[in-house]
Design a protein around this nucleic acid. Structure first.
Length: 275
DNA sequence: GGCCAGGGCCCAC
DNA sequence: GTGGGCCATGGC
């Protein structure tokens, strides 16, 4: 399934820190698991990607997952024609990034794990949790024993602390279990938060222990697709302090601040050659 | 081997 | 609402 899009760069998406299960198989070829499916993505040229799936599966899952109905070029062009030099460089550098529509529960648990960890450590931890609590991915060709789905709320709600700690969660073990229980028992309705406003979602998420302002904004942005969310982590804070001297005006980008945030994040990290 | 990481909790102030 | 210790652990 060949897709042409001016703003679709798999490497940039995989390295943008929004998802943790998209990994390189070789140069220009990545794989990931989402919504119970495995897929390989090959960047053929700057604007062309080969999705290793049928047209039916593409339309059912991956078109939405990669947010392919949204016009990112409009956002990039707006930034490129603006006056903010840092954002011009950021948007030009990361113009192939898109905000994935990840599964809300996966985003919630992933960003709970992410606190005070670097990205390689987050990936290791999440892969372990998928291996122990997820299911082997099923394909039309059979079961793939090397790839696992992200666990269900139920699977993690009944996990125990010691087992999670062996998977390198550290002190976050109880946060994970409590969040999974809240979702499993219906106390936290993530699907309802997809429909709600970003503000309502953040407030509901922050009632969970282990979910503060930053994690709630990441879940809102990457799991609920509220693209006005603007997570501030140590990297973004560095930019707001050093580049903008504390005077960055979020209101200039209201409605799509999360996309701007991703360009900033990807640019500053790449500029500092951090993996 | 020390420092840092897509932070949050808990407690003073 | 701000500022500091503290948290468990890997990656570099």
């Amino acid at each position: 399934m060949i897709i042409n899009n001016e703003n679709l760069d798999i490497k940039q998406i995989a390295e943008s820190g929004q998802c943790f299960r998209m990994n390189a198989l070789e140069d220009n070829k990545y794989r990931t698991v989402a919504y119970g499916r495995y897929i390989e993505l090959t960047q053929i040229d700057e604007t062309t990607v080969d999705f290793s799936c049928t047209e039916e599966e593409f339309n059912e899952i991956w078109k939405d997952y990669f947010d392919l109905s949204y016009d990112y070029k409009r956002i990039v062009d707006r930034l490129l024609s603006g006056k903010d030099e840092f954002l011009k460089k950021s948007a030009d550098f990361g113009k192939g990034i898109r905000i994935l529509r990840q599964e809300p529960f996966e985003a919630l648990i992933s960003f709970i794990i992410s606190q005070n960890k670097n990205i390689p450590a987050i990936k290791t931890c999440i892969e372990g949790i998928c291996r122990e609590y997820g299911e082997p991915v099923k394909t039309p060709q059979g079961i793939m024993n090397e790839y696992y789905t992200f666990p269900t709320p139920e699977a993690l709600a009944f996990a125990n602390r010691e087992d999670l700690r062996k998977l390198k969660t550290g002190y976050r073990d109880e946060y994970i279990i409590q969040a999974a229980r809240a979702v499993y028992e219906g106390e936290l309705d993530l699907q309802a938060l997809v429909e709600s406003s970003h503000e309502v979602a953040v407030e509901a998420l922050m009632r969970l222990k282990g979910v503060g302002m930053k994690v709630a904004n990441c879940v809102s942005l990457f799991g609920l697709h509220h693209i006005e969310a603007f997570p501030v982590d140590v990297w973004i804070k560095k930019i707001l302090d050093d580049v903008y001297d504390g005077k960055f005006d979020l209101n200039l980008y209201s409605g799509y601040a999360g996309i701007v945030q991703q360009y900033m994040f990807y640019y500053i990290r790449s500029a500092q050659l951090i993996g």
